[in-house]
Nucleic acid binder design. Sequence first.
DNA 1: GATCCGTGGGT
DNA 2: TACCCAAGGAT
Length: 366
Amino acid sequence: MIIEHENSEKININAFQDDLISWFKAEQRDLPWRKDQDPYKVWVSEIMLQQTRVDTVIPYFNRFIEWFPTIDDLANADEDKVLKAWEGLGYYSRVRNLQFAVKEVREKYNGEVPNTPKEIAELKGVGPYTAGAILSIAYGLPEPAVDGNVMRVLSRILLIWEDIAKTSSRKTFEQAVRDLISHEDPSSFNQALMELGALICTPTSPSCLLCPVREHCQAFFEGVHEELPVKTKKKKTRDVQLAATVLTNSAGKLLIHKRPSNGLLANLWEFPNVEIYHNLQNEREEVANLFSQELHLNTQLDRIIGQIEHVFSHLVWNIKVYIGTLSDDFQESEDWKLVSFKEIEDFAFPVSYQKMFQMYKNFLEE
DNA sequence: GATCCGTGGGT
DNA sequence: TACCCAAGGAT
């Protein structure tokens, strides 16, 4: 067990802060959420950046702020439109929690993002990392913001051999940051640790020769920078078999369904589908029976037009894609809608069903 | 503490 | 190909 306080004392803290922050101020990337310190925009960017690359986030951030420039705009927006703004980013509960929390800020804090650790951490979707990020970046408070970058960078600089995959080890790194953080510029310090992790102190083959804090790095000194951080692997995904169908009525409209409000891809839209638990004998017929029994859809399935594999973080969907016809007496409801090719663009679909719709359009062109 | 929750890019 | 990973949080 490494005692983090002793490790922090092994380096010259003031020199470390200066080298790190000077490098950050000279080399930091020009990112849209760095144009000002509006707590709302900092908040949005931090939620988007959770488990998501900077390059992926940039266009989403710009459009999101365009659509919802202020807390009021987001609080008043329809959730369907909010999800559409997030479409393709993944982890969709992030944005539903964000909108929920923004409403709380409007009502409880008069529209001002709170600036105390206790109050901000109570907001839905704001965990220890995001709380520290907002407090330091938007409000200049010396709070730790420990993400994967920070754990990787500090595990090397301070020679910390704890398994960063364990949730319990975050506290070790938070204490290390409290020991090291600049009280003159907590914002630059925290961002610099993450920027260093993203640009220099990368997971594989770090650019140590370009590193501004190499002379403070114990792992480099010991020659073990490639062995850190220690991180145990996670388990494999499991496979799920689905049958999904594009159903059209005689007017050429497509049937879509809104997913339940919790669990995987909550409140996003999809094409009608059922899970297949066993191998089926007469597949097309038995799938039609499942649509009838489970979804109360009486349909004729014409044929399979293809197959889609979609990989999630924790499972894999194998989707057999059918086409079929829907009788004209079908009754729409809140979560079952008939839409035209133009109208479908306004609904948020997960990428798996975007792939399926593209497959259908390609089929029609042949 | 373990699992759920997305997606696209890198090696 | 089959991993691994990226500014995590909720349950």
